[in-house]
């Protein structure tokens, strides 16, 4: 009988990523309801020391595979190692983060474990002993409540939605041999180009300041970049601004861009096309600055300023700077 709530921890360059603590804390909550254990899978090279950090967030047992072939992350090596230990232990629930790595690894694991999964979930609870997930569909134009009838019941959790809660447990380390077959490893990372700007990815940002068609041109983005710098925010863009070539594709928020849920989303000169509203509608607080009082964005906004963004944004930057000084 499948038993235990498992997570696959995510580390990069020898450090656990924040999402790992979010999924560990959620796993702890679910496991307590079921009266089961929380186990984590930790994959990499020279990473055994990270187990103690997972223990702090409620993990009873950490299964560690330490192998040079697991660093840096490749789908085939990590999926093979994770599938092996999961098949041996038959957990009831398996959680990963809905980060780029978690999405990639989890999907491959659905294939290897012949099961079902809900991606990018915003709620996870136990009902009648089974996992009940809630996830946005159509980029958040509607939500689906999802159940999985096979084991493990898999889910990836959206970053920034589930709280990381300290709850120290034993975190007993169990080493295992991933038994990787070099002939089966068909991908390798040949280059990593780091973004040196130190900018937090839109999907992980606490605050986003986005600019749309109302920005009038790429030369005006420093205006919102300055506000973003004061707030420690990441700059986003609407599809109109990206398609016009003003901003890189990686900045696009919306149904065909990134789906985000920051604590604060400030939309500057964005009218609020339905596909944009879908991508940011789950933000906790939404601010709209737009001179058109009829712009659909105002229907979604918690706070609206109907005025010229070129006048309001610099003043907002100044006011925030004073408040946060």
């Amino acid at each position: 009988m499948a038993n235990g709530v498992w997570i696959i921890a995510e580390q990069r360059d020898g450090a656990l990523r924040k999402i790992s603590f979010e999924i560990a804390s959620t796993a702890r909550k679910l496991a307590d309801e079921l009266g089961q254990q929380v186990c984590a899978v930790l994959l990499g090279s020279g990473i055994e020391g990270l187990a103690a950090e997972l223990a702090k967030y409620g993990v009873d047992k950490v299964f560690v595979a330490d192998d040079p072939a697991l660093e840096p992350y490749t789908t085939d090596a990590h999926a093979a190692a994770a599938a092996k230990i999961i098949k041996e232990n038959d957990p009831a629930i398996l959680l990963l983060g809905a980060s780029t790595q978690g999405r990639d690894l989890s999907a491959r694991l659905v294939g290897k474990l012949a099961t079902g999964m809900g991606t990018d979930c915003v709620d996870a609870k136990i009902v009648d002993g089974k996992l009940l997930l809630k996830r946005p569909m159509y980029a958040g134009k509607c939500f689906g409540e999802v159940t999985i009838s096979s084991f493990p019941q898999m889910a990836t959790l959206r970053p920034n939605v589930f709280p990381a809660v300290e709850n120290p447990k034993a975190g007993e380390v169990v080493k295992f041999d991933p038994a990787l077959d070099p002939a089966k490893l068909k991908t390798k990372v040949v280059e990593v180009q780091k973004d040196t700007s130190g900018k937090v990815d839109l999907t992980e940002a606490n605050i986003i300041v986005s600019g749309g068609r109302g920005m009038k041109g790429p030369e005006n983005y420093p205006l919102i970049e300055e506000l973003a710098a004061v707030l420690g925010a990441t700059v986003g863009a609407s599809r109109a601004a990206v398609d016009a070539g003003w901003r890189p594709q990686s900045d696009q928020v919306g149904q065909t861009g990134k789906i985000v849920s920051p604590n604060l989303y400030i939309a500057c000169g964005i009218s609020g096309a339905i596909q944009h509203l879908a991508g940011m509608g789950s933000s906790k607080v939404i601010v709209a600055i737009n001179k058109d009082p009829e712009a659909p964005i105002f229907a979604k906004a918690d706070y609206g300023v109907v005025d010229d963004l070129f006048k309001v944004v610099p003043e907002l930057t100044k006011a925030c700077k004073e408040l946060l000084a």
Binding site: G118, C142, G144, E145, S149, G281, D302, V305
Partner: peptide, 20 residues
């Protein structure tokens, strides 16, 4: 079929905002 959407729901309604 192992994964089922047992219920579709509209997105949570947002409370009316404040225009400054």
């Amino acid at each position: 079929v192992n994964m089922k959407v047992v219920k579709f729901t509209p997105p949570p309604a947002r409370a009316a905002g404040k225009i400054i």
